[in-house]
Design a protein around this nucleic acid. Sequence first.
RNA 1: GCCCAAGUGGCGGAAUAGGCAGACGCAAGGGACUUAAAAUCCCUCGGCAGAAAUGCCGUGCCGGUUCGAGUCCGGCCUUGGGCACCA
Length: 808
Amino acid sequence: MFEMKYDFTKIEKKWQDKWAKEETFRASDDTSKPKYYALVEFPYPSGHGLHVGHPRSYTALDIVSRKRRLEGYNVLYPMGWDAFGLPTENYAIKNKIHPKKVTAANVANFKKQLQSLGFSIDWSREVNTTDPAYYKWTQWIFLKLFEKGLAYKQEMPINWCTSCRVGLANEEVVDGVCERCGSQVVQKSKSQWMLKITAYAQRLIDDLDDVDFIEKVKIQQRNWIGRSEGAEVKFKVGETGDEILVYTTRPDTLFGATYTVLSPEHPLIDTLMPLIGNKDEVLAYRALAAGKSEFERSELTKEKTGAALAGVTALNPVNGEKLPIWISDYVMMTYGTGAIMAVPAHDTRDWEFAKKFGLPIVEVVAGGRDVQAEAYTDVTAGVMVNSGFLSGLQVKDAIRAIIDDLEAKGLGSRKVNYKLRDWVFSRQRYWGEPIPLVHCDRCGWVALPESELPLTLPEVENYEPTDNGESPLAKMDAWVNTACPACGGAAKRETDTMPQWAGSSWYFLRYIDPHNDKVLASDELMQYWLPIDWYNGGMEHTTLHLLYSRFWHKFLYDIGVVPTKEPYQKRTSHGMILGENNEKMSKSRGNVVNPDDIVQQFGADTFRTYEMFIGAFDQATPWSMQGVKGCYKFLERVWNLKGILAAGEGYSAEMESLMHKAVKKVGDDIERLKFNTAIATLMSLVNDFSRLGRVTRGEFKTFLTLLNPIAPHMTEELWAVCGYAGTIAGGKWPVYDEAKTVDDQIEIVLQINGRIRDKLLVAAGLDKDATQKAALESGKIKELTEGRQIVKVIVVPGKLVNVVVGGK
RNA sequence: GCCCAAGUGGCGGAAUAGGCAGACGCAAGGGACUUAAAAUCCCUCGGCAGAAAUGCCGUGCCGGUUCGAGUCCGGCCUUGGGCACCA
């Protein structure tokens, strides 16, 4: 019999062209249909092109999207470009090409690559963060934040990358070096735009309860926000009456405080300076601490350093005891109050410091350990000792009692703190959204009127930041000098630009209504499409992008722009694809796989199938060319099934149960992101068809539909070749009959003392007593229990019978 | 140091609620077809013993719970990820 060869190149081109021409996957704005909004993280279009990691996420949600359409949903599955950012700018500087041109070329390449994989993306909604029509709204949101007092400028020490010459957020500093270029990061003081994400800290924690995020993501976000409950306690300086406010999560240990520590940057040090006997030492220590980068400060954990403030003492508010005041860089100005009470008996850091400087150590939570030898820190429970009126109380009660007491006396109060810090929003760079503010000597910082948005980037000759760290925009006098929108007087534009996280904090809203020039998206359409039903992305975005975008969304909700508190209803995460040598893929390791090569050699359907079959979706797993070949072989076997196509619109007797089981299994597996086992099920079906030597038209029809979301091109082609009506994309997802997924006869396991001794075929639904009877009558069991005492029989109907016997 | 994953054949992995460990695929070995090779098809494929039937052992390690543990509990080890002087 003549058999057409599986010509994937031709088939894939044919269907991709058809989908593009007919706009098969265009999301409709017909709000009467049930909707489904599937989202994947839009890529940064780098010059390296698509990585095999990108399509892991894209294919997964493409499969979900295609299945949803067959289930009758109006599906939105969009794509866009997170195109501002440093690599493009650095490339532009080096090669003297405008970043706009670099971006356009990279986007074109990425788009071509994505399209070659046959994703069911609605390309009519493509967005690009560098498009002025897009960043007009990024700027608009910033102005709203500014208007509500959530954007503020502050002189503060920032992380400064010595190579990029750019301020970095804490999150962009990894192990003391720049996340992007690996160069050393130092502290530098600069006036920065900040966004008050901390104002939303509690809501960002609380509202996690209402969304379906994988637990890992929730835990990581909670940890990052870092809520802690404690108290602020006032210590008085004995000599001056000044107040030292300390934050502690353990006010119950107040009687164990043997000294206090101020951060070297603490402003009280200046106030006390006239009384300090060892000014030189103190000033020297402050200078030393200031010269260290945040990394160096945290790196030098081995040895505590510090200086005592001679001539001043703090008074413990509970007993008036005089405590020495020290300064040390193990206390951070940016957390709590920048001052602590030290309880060396029960805190490792305080203990190390006390040991080094010979300060007293007083046990206040009984633990039966020698606190002089080691800090006893396992003190979430225990009995208070050496603690005045708290002695004898349980820790839990002591905390309440001491706070009540401090509050009553006006010496302290309950306080919640968060590790989360405000978001440094300024970048001294060219390739980012201009911050649409103007500084006027008379009016201060003034927002541009909305009518002047977008404030576009001016053309510049040179994109390099200035040597003093100003953005290249600062050199553009004609652009910088402007009139104050408020008073009309001379004023200067802000020359900092926004960080890359800005455009990605709201892009999912723009997909909903990408061409609207009146509002960022219409109320009606947002009402319909939000929230996003399923958002898949990398774990690496959990604490940055995901938190930032939730923050912006909540803000937009507060000002009535968006209809939901949370942007994403469901969040899942995929694992990394490693090189064949089990290491992270990178150019330097020489283990990078280029998707284009795989598509060219085996086709997009094989590529997609392999990416989903490679392993557990949420786990890291190595690439294997042998595995790719295996998937190709599978698709080829599917292709050849048409050679054994047999009459019959229904399922054959032999296949009926298997077909119903497969429909159930594949559907369930896709919902649970178990693509590998869904594909395994389909492979088993192919094995069954081959063994039987025939596949009925009805069986093949169901099979092709189940495989279609994974391998859309070849299944559509086979559909057409076999003469089925219409297309799979225009059809329906198959249904199964639960009753037909249950076998009439079930093989149960017969055990003696938990060891399998025999197997027995019984009728499905056989009850406990009948199962037990059948088991005990089976030859093998009879033989082996002969002359032994049956102690107990465990029966799990439909599963097993375990006979527990005594010795002979 | 703290938090979160993971550890199963030669390899990727499966086992959805405590009930047949190793589905599916890859690799390997044997065979059929072929002048030959490739492709394809068939068989074998955790270890030990055995001709076989079969038996014993086996899911990182040590204990525990249970009639029964890859799965639950306690304690470790290793790897990966995140945080880290956060009071």
